Amino acid sequence: MLPQDNYNRSYVSPGRDRSLSFPSLMRSVYIWMALALAVTGLTAMTIATQPQIVYAIFANRAIFWMLILAELGMVIYLSARIMSMSFATAGIVFVVYALLNGVTLSSLFLAYTAESIAQTFFVTAGTFGAMAVIGFLVKRDLSAIGRFFYMALIGLIIATVANAFFHNSGVAMICNYAGVVIFSGLTAYDTQKIKNMLVQFGDRRDETVMKLALLGSLSLYLDFINLFLYLLRFLGNRR
């Protein structure tokens, strides 16, 4: 997930007058997120129909882990350096990251049926949409809840890594349930955080504000992808 320091953490009362540019900024957040999801999905489906490419990626552990490390490096780099790069460069890095993520997620089409993947996607979209609406409309400051979910996420990562060695099905099931709850909660928290951040910029529509909106898109994109992956473990039908 994204470092919290990239956002202004102060809470803005929902009653404060919003700028005329705020709605378009929020639209740009979701447009970039939708674009990244489309790139990821189309890439995954395309790669899955190419047996030679699939074999080259997943039969060679070195290539697979290089892709994983490249994705992780791009997220960290974009989160930490976005303010020092142009908006165009940041957008390209985001799209390339989404494309690489699609390459690695193409393995899902080998493990699960296309129908169950599609069904899970729509369930994820519904869940994500509901939590985003809650995060956007709720008047209560969700900062404390957000911090709790980020700490829970760290615990989830540690438990998942540890269970990779012990292969305990009970722990795996608990991690799956926790993952759904955590990323549902983070969706609401991140939505409110992005809203409160963008509403503070008055009528500004400069590159700095656009880059902050792009950073928010990346955060919500990651929430959606992770929520989808955890739900797929429950709803997906294996081949």
Results as ranks from 00 to 15, higher is better:
190 D>V: 12
137 L>V: 12
196 N>R: 15
168 N>D: 15
150 Y>P: 12
191 T>C: 02
231 L>E: 00
193 K>N: 13
135 G>D: 03
197 M>N: 12
145 I>Y: 11
175 C>D: 11
229 L>R: 07
227 L>Y: 05
174 I>P: 04
158 I>T: 07
160 T>E: 10
181 V>D: 04
206 D>T: 01
230 Y>T: 05
209 V>L: 03
220 L>D: 01
136 F>V: 05
194 I>M: 04
193 K>R: 05
224 F>V: 02
192 Q>L: 06
195 K>C: 13
217 S>L: 04
198 L>H: 03
166 F>R: 12
207 E>T: 02
147 R>Q: 13
173 M>W: 09
225 I>P: 04
144 A>N: 15
173 M>D: 12
191 T>E: 00
212 L>Y: 07
172 A>Y: 02
198 L>R: 03
183 F>M: 08
176 N>H: 09
149 F>C: 05
228 F>W: 07
197 M>E: 14
225 I>F: 13
186 L>Q: 02
141 D>E: 00
214 L>I: 11
151 M>W: 13
222 L>F: 08
132 A>Q: 09
181 V>Y: 06
184 S>T: 06
199 V>A: 09
139 K>F: 15
184 S>I: 07
142 L>A: 10
231 L>F: 04
170 G>I: 01
169 S>R: 14
158 I>Y: 08
215 L>C: 05
160 T>H: 08
198 L>S: 00
174 I>F: 11
136 F>N: 11
204 R>C: 06
137 L>E: 10
157 I>D: 01
206 D>P: 04
228 F>M: 09
197 M>Y: 08
163 N>P: 02
209 V>G: 03
227 L>I: 00
220 L>R: 07
166 F>G: 14
224 F>C: 05
173 M>I: 12
169 S>Q: 07
150 Y>L: 09
229 L>D: 09
140 R>A: 15
189 Y>C: 01
140 R>Q: 13
166 F>L: 10
162 A>M: 10
185 G>A: 12
224 F>Q: 08
172 A>D: 03
214 L>A: 09
221 Y>N: 07
131 M>E: 07
182 I>V: 13
160 T>S: 14
171 V>R: 06
212 L>R: 15
187 T>Q: 01
185 G>Q: 03
214 L>F: 13
201 F>K: 04
224 F>G: 01
149 F>R: 04
223 D>P: 06
159 A>Q: 14
136 F>T: 12
143 S>T: 14
233 R>F: 14
211 K>C: 01
189 Y>V: 04
164 A>W: 13
222 L>S: 02
206 D>L: 01
204 R>I: 07
130 A>D: 10
